[in-house]
């Protein structure tokens, strides 16, 4: 195995880990609430990247049968699993993306409510206002 092959076989996992850690760091250390939500979305897409990377097969086609193939399959020809990318991770992640945007919407609604109550979306200022009993 050459160096290039080794890097290509691991690159997706390394980048998934780096992106996930960027998202985690943003969620922990950023003080702005919208920045925290962007960090959460990056974390989420990193996990989706991991799942989709697992389903890739070298030299495979997209998981949709061509008309000629489906016609042949009707006459008893066997469809080989190696010819098509693994469709199961795609299904799981497709619903995860749409649910993710719905939960991002809930988070943004809470941010707007906090801004309405406290007049700021910076975490230290909100904490100071709660401690002084204002707001």
């Amino acid at each position: 195995m050459t160096v290039t092959e080794f890097i290509v076989s691991r690159l997706n996992y390394w980048i998934y880990i780096i992106l996930m850690m960027i998202g985690l760091f943003a969620m922990i250390s950023k003080k702005n609430l919208i920045k925290k939500l962007i960090g959460m979305s990056i974390f989420q897409t990193a996990i989706i990247l991991f799942y989709v990377s697992l389903g890739v097969k070298e030299g495979s086609n997209i998981p949709i049968l061509e008309h000629s193939v489906s016609h042949a399959a009707e006459h008893g020809e066997i469809i080989r699993a190696e010819d098509y990318a693994n469709p199961l991770p795609h299904v799981l992640m497709l619903t995860a993306i749409v649910v993710g945007v719905a939960t991002l919407g809930v988070g943004l609604a809470i941010v707007q409510k906090i801004h309405k109550e406290f007049g700021t979306i910076e975490e230290p200022e909100i904490l100071a206002k709660i401690e002084s009993g204002d707001g």
Binding site: S53, G55, S60, P63, I64, A85, P89, M93, L94, I97
Partner: peptide, 13 residues
């Protein structure tokens, strides 16, 4: 990465 349905969803969402 051949995940066309996921790509379509991500483009829209």
């Amino acid at each position: 990465m051949a995940a066309v349905d996921v790509a379509f969803t991500e483009a829209a969402v």
